[in-house]
Computed example of a mutant assay.
Amino acid sequence: MNWKNCIWGGALSVLLFSCGTRQEINYMKDIENLALDNSVKNSRSTLQPGDQLLITVSAKDMDVVKPFNQTYSSATTITQYSTPSSNNLPQQVPVSGPTYNVDTDGDIVFPQIGKVNTKNENIETFRLKLTDLIREYVKDPVVDVKLINFRVSVLGEVTRPGTYLVPDGNATLLSALGLAGDLTSYGVRTNVLVVRNVDGQFTKERIDLTSAQFINSPYYYLKQNDIIYVQPNANREKAARVDPNTGLYISVASVIASLAIGILALTKN
């Protein structure tokens, strides 16, 4: 009888040990109760030193705008990352045209115009600013500005941690997590850390993905070189401290226990 109690007790202990606590895995449970109007103001990231801009100028008479398109002309290739729902490998997207690097003072040097400052400008406001400057030389110019080196890093408990390039320069916290294949079952969804460097100043914010309130956070729309870290839950940390051979030890112990029970049964007979 004592042996039976030990066996049942051991089985119950294994069952309880193997079952982790139930994790809250739903995102934005209260989204239907939240007004999202305030998030619009944060939807566009301001340009930062180190940004690489592809700028093209066009007009009805393309010969007139040639002087604005001939400097820093280059042909490069960037990587467009596929979404986790796709089985396709990342695609190589060619990008060609005049490119400009934003220097440490926030300036680019544009042909015919000279230095143009990007500080406190996002892609759209800078495009309008540049259009106004070119309009002094060209009638009805059409200016296109793209940020081609927008990167974010996603680390911790995600399926594919790494640094991701977002060619359109428009990324949200959720889209970045999507690029990384979403959180694993061990990721803490109520405490996702976003670290940001703006003009040399580091700031951070902890985000609760289970509440729609984070959409109104200035950290919902990501900025250049943001770092997202997903913390592991207690089960993952506990597993990390366990000897990797623990499973083998348990298997061997189970075999030995079975043999012992069998031998005892034979000796009683």
Score class of each variant (00 low, 15 high):
residue 1 M to R: 12
residue 3 W to D: 09
residue 9 G to K: 07
residue 9 G to P: 02
residue 12 L to V: 08
residue 14 V to P: 00
residue 17 F to Q: 05
residue 21 T to V: 12
residue 22 R to I: 11
residue 25 I to R: 00
residue 27 Y to M: 09
residue 34 L to N: 08
residue 37 D to W: 10
residue 41 K to A: 14
residue 44 R to E: 04
residue 44 R to D: 07
residue 54 L to F: 04
residue 54 L to P: 00
residue 63 D to W: 11
residue 73 S to Q: 01
residue 74 S to V: 04
residue 75 A to C: 00
residue 80 Q to F: 05
residue 81 Y to W: 10
residue 82 S to C: 01
residue 84 P to W: 04
residue 85 S to C: 02
residue 94 P to K: 06
residue 95 V to T: 07
residue 96 S to K: 14
residue 97 G to A: 09
residue 98 P to G: 03
residue 104 T to F: 12
residue 104 T to Y: 14
residue 110 F to Y: 14
residue 110 F to M: 06
residue 113 I to D: 10
residue 113 I to V: 05
residue 117 N to S: 06
residue 121 E to G: 03
residue 128 L to M: 04
residue 131 T to K: 09
residue 131 T to D: 01
residue 134 I to M: 04
residue 140 D to C: 03
residue 141 P to K: 11
residue 141 P to Y: 15
residue 145 V to E: 11
residue 156 G to K: 07
residue 162 G to S: 13
residue 166 V to N: 15
residue 167 P to F: 14
residue 169 G to H: 15
residue 172 T to P: 00
residue 176 A to K: 10
residue 177 L to A: 06
residue 187 G to M: 14
residue 188 V to W: 05
residue 189 R to A: 08
residue 189 R to Y: 09
residue 191 N to Q: 05
residue 195 V to Y: 13
residue 195 V to N: 02
residue 195 V to L: 14
residue 198 V to C: 02
residue 199 D to A: 10
residue 200 G to P: 05
residue 204 K to R: 04
residue 205 E to F: 06
residue 206 R to E: 13
residue 217 S to G: 07
residue 218 P to W: 12
residue 223 K to N: 03
residue 226 D to V: 02
residue 233 N to Y: 15
residue 234 A to I: 13
residue 238 K to M: 13
residue 245 N to S: 11
residue 250 I to D: 05
residue 250 I to N: 15
residue 251 S to V: 04
residue 260 A to K: 00
residue 263 I to S: 08
residue 269 N to A: 02
